[in-house]
Design a protein around this nucleic acid. Sequence first.
DNA 1: GTTTGTATTGAACAATTGTTCAGTTAGTCT
DNA 2: AGACTAACTGAACAATTGTTCAATACAAAC
Lengths: 199, 199
Amino acid sequence: MARTVGSHSDTTAQRVRAAALTLFARHGFAAVSMRQIATEVGVQVGALYNYTPDKQTLLFDLMRSHLEELLDAFEDRQDLPPPARLEAFVRFHIRFHHKRPEAVFIAYMELRNLSPENFAVIEDLRRAYENRLEAIIAAGVAQGAFDVADTKIATLAAIALLTGVNTWFRADGRLTLDAVEAQYWQMVSKALAGTANQL
Amino acid sequence: MARTVGSHSDTTAQRVRAAALTLFARHGFAAVSMRQIATEVGVQVGALYNYTPDKQTLLFDLMRSHLEELLDAFEDRQDLPPPARLEAFVRFHIRFHHKRPEAVFIAYMELRNLSPENFAVIEDLRRAYENRLEAIIAAGVAQGAFDVADTKIATLAAIALLTGVNTWFRADGRLTLDAVEAQYWQMVSKALAGTANQL
DNA sequence: GTTTGTATTGAACAATTGTTCAGTTAGTCT
DNA sequence: AGACTAACTGAACAATTGTTCAATACAAAC
């Protein structure tokens, strides 16, 4: 046998990426074989190499497009006051990450399986995203709306906090995503608040 | 050849665990072979099986003892008022996790490589730790020192926030661990504070 | 100094790994 | 209808995987 009925490079490429995303997220990059991906796609192993030069590049492409989509999707309304900008960021971050749990998982867990060059690219993208948040926090500090000792730490702390939602939130649980957004926004806003409010 | 000079099961057992910890943290469980561990220990592969029935149990033992040490190490001073208890927890968590970055990494990243039974054991231990924090938060809410919409969410949020320190803090960086503890405690205390303090 | 038990070697096992490629069939274009 | 190209198969490759076990050299006890 050879070429199969209805085969098209566009659709197969998509299915390869989707299968890799799901399997990498579920079992981890190193634990997934190219044959498992091929089986999921419904194709023989060799065919995968029409869509990626090697296994690691497949992982890298998934990570990069995830982070690029993340950066593209966030629109910073610089005309708004910092608290409103920050609230928009918080809600955006939670919603965006909720929609792509597998990509989020992979982008945070499989960094060590990248070559140094690929790792550097991913790190740059991640830092670019962090910088967007830091700019908001810095603006708020500058005009007294926020009070933080170090904007970089506050940025990393906020992102760790918000990304943590993905580890426990389930849409069929007792809370709606809207309620979660509201509660996290409350915690973030209080944590960074300018009004002195120590215990 | 056979038994080697100076060989003792006690010391070898320790070295096997140490080697596995380092390698699993650096490359991931699935990416590390038993032969790599053996090489690190300075022994042949077969010798490892005097110390673990199989590879996965080696991982499980590392995770379990890490979490058991974590639970043993934290002493909750229930006699103190909730804010002081919470501060003690925050500082303990950051310090303890800072001393064991590899074990922390593994315990959060390699859960999917456990069998269902082993996974359940680890999950119970983690939940036990979370419950310790939740008890503190609940006590603070009960007496009005804290104000959170949901103690479970506040607990998970705080742990995600605090554990995030490990992803960026380096002892040779521009900040001391003490300064980091102080800043994180400030954020946590403000985030959960009872006094109304919205933006 | 002999015996007993412990710690390790070294080789073997079947299974699986990522990757390559000549051959073959399906879609597409003229 | 025929020629051309794109997509896939199927088999092969050497390397590596986790695990087992008889043989053996050491340490400890007497």
